[in-house]
Amino acid sequence: MEAPEDGVTTGTVPFRGHETWYRVTGTIDPQSERAPLVVLHGGPGAAHNYTLAMTALADDGRAVVHYDQLGCGRSTHLPDADPSFWTVELFVAELRAVVEHLGIADRFHLLGQSWGGMLGPEVVLADDSGILSLSICDSPASMPLWLQAANELRDELPADVQATLLAHEEAGTTDSAEYKAAEEVFYDRHVCRVVPNPPEVTASFAQIDDDPTVYHAMNGPSEFHVIGSLKEWSVVDRVQDIRVPTLVVAGAYDEAKPIVWQPFVERIPDVRSHVFPSSSHMPHVEEPEAFTEVVGAFLREHD
């Protein structure tokens, strides 16, 4: 573990022969009234950077833990791993390794954003011990619902943009500059409406470009062209077994349209939801003060 600097401590956790990098904002104190919050980033493979605005949740005295999931950011990269290596079970086990290493396994809040909000329910359903609450941010209860929403939003794009996307997907040239430019039209509408994107957001996108191993294996080449192992993923038929208090949030312009997160709200026994009116997929970036207020109040209620 590296020495604290400006209230931030970093280190690594040994995990299955590799290293998972973590960052703690604030101080982990077992006696603190405020339980630590662990943040699960999106992607898969997007790294923690774009969620750093959530460190504002440490302002009421709780520690906020970020970490880079295996295969991205400052954790071990495995560009030659077989695609079958990247599983939900792998990342559930990694979360448990992190909280055990940090000594917080018996009392912590869990927040997942995008893919992290898919992983969060999987963590809770596998073992909810020690988890005080779950926050699901901008996330689908199933990938088929996600694709349905993405296709609806895609149909609203300018005709030339739609044509460009389709042509390159059919040709297998989704790494072309033309495809990236068309993709950006969708992203500016439904992923992050703060344009140009803040540096921490561009950093996460840049590192996916540098090493897209996990993203391509589990998701695919873009947010709306999903051909990876998560294509049929769903927790819709299991979420009624989530027994921890749950908060579901999204943005009004979110690529995570209401149809994708409604099953959480309809089926989780102890649940509430909130929609941020001026946000898309990153309310923590687009409306940071409102996000901190809503999520912070929920966490304090369940400390």
Rank of each mutant, 00 (worst) to 15 (best):
V39F: 03
G43P: 01
A35W: 04
V13M: 07
P36W: 06
H18F: 05
V24N: 07
P44C: 07
G43I: 07
G45T: 13
G26K: 11
P14H: 02
H18A: 15
E33H: 06
A35Q: 08
I28K: 11
E33A: 15
T27C: 06
L40N: 05
L40H: 05
E19M: 12
A35T: 09
Y50G: 01
P30G: 11
T20A: 13
R23A: 06
E33C: 00
G17F: 08
T25P: 00
Q31I: 00
R23W: 10
P36S: 09
P44I: 10
G42A: 08
G26N: 10
G43S: 10
E19A: 15
V13N: 02
V38P: 08
H41D: 12
V38L: 15
Q31Y: 01
P36L: 05
H48P: 00
L40D: 10
P30E: 02
E33V: 06
P30F: 08
L37Y: 10
V39P: 02
P14N: 05
N49I: 00
G17C: 12
V38D: 01
P14L: 04
R23D: 09
N49M: 13
V24Y: 08
G42E: 02
V38R: 08
Q31H: 09
H18S: 08
V13Q: 05
T25C: 10
P44S: 03
H41K: 05
T27Q: 15
T25E: 15
G45I: 14
I28D: 06
A47W: 00
Y22L: 13
S32R: 11
G17L: 11
N49W: 12
R34G: 00
L40T: 06
P14E: 05
P30N: 04
A46D: 01
Y22T: 12
G17H: 01
R16K: 13
G43Y: 06
G45Q: 10
I28G: 09
G42Y: 09
G26A: 13
G26V: 11
D29R: 13
Y22S: 04
S32W: 03
Y22H: 09
A46G: 03
R34D: 06
P14S: 04
R16C: 03
H41C: 01
Q31T: 15
P36A: 12
P44E: 08
V38E: 01
Q31W: 01
G45C: 12
H48L: 13
P14K: 05
R16W: 01
T27H: 09
P44N: 10
W21F: 15
T27S: 14
A46R: 09
V24L: 09
A35L: 04
F15W: 06
P44F: 11
H48D: 08
T20K: 01
Y50K: 07
W21C: 00
N49Q: 15
G17K: 06
T27R: 15
R16S: 13
P30Y: 02
L40Y: 07
H48F: 04
Y50E: 11
G26H: 12
T25R: 13
D29K: 11
S32K: 04
R16G: 14
H41Y: 03
A47L: 13
P30C: 07
V38F: 02
V13Y: 07
R16T: 01
A35F: 02
I28F: 12
S32D: 14
A47D: 14
P14Q: 02
V38K: 05
D29Y: 11
E33N: 04
T25L: 00
A46H: 10
R23S: 14
R16A: 15
I28Q: 09
R16D: 15
H41E: 14
A47I: 00
E19H: 14
F15T: 12
G43L: 04
